[in-house]
């Protein structure tokens, strides 16, 4: 299991949650507080989740931090 911390504008949380829920099985998402979210997914789905996170960074101003890797925030580990 791998996980990412994702910080977004709180107004984007429902949109992003909708995206994840519509992307069947891509990740589980947990809202910590405000716009602070945690994404978790099996390692086998990492590349699909990272693709989505790339979009959130590019189009929604998200800041992403891999919680299970010390290297590149998004692309670290087995992509």
């Amino acid at each position: 299991m791998i996980s990412f911390r994702v910080d977004v504008d709180p107004r984007e949380v429902v949109f992003i949650k909708s995206l994840v829920e519509a992307s069947e099985g891509i990740a589980s998402i947990f809202a910590d507080h405000g716009g602070c979210l945690t994404f978790a997914t099996p390692a086998a789905r990492r590349s699909a989740l990272v693709e989505l996170l790339d979009d959130l960074v590019a189009h929604h101003g998200a800041r992403v931090e891999a919680l299970d890797s010390a290297d590149d925030p998004i692309h670290g580990g087995g992509r």
Binding site: R11, E12, V14, F15, S18, L19, E21, A22, A58, H59
Partner: peptide
């Protein structure tokens, strides 16, 4: 949820979200 996917796809293509949709501002209300 489907509209969220469509918005993402729209932005991936480099297109803006239609103005009419922005007018329906609470679409992603909590």
């Amino acid at each position: 949820e489907e509209l969220a996917l469509a918005i993402l796809a729209q932005r991936r293509r480099g297109h803006e979200i239609p103005d009419s949709m922005v007018g329906f501002a609470n679409l992603f209300d909590a």
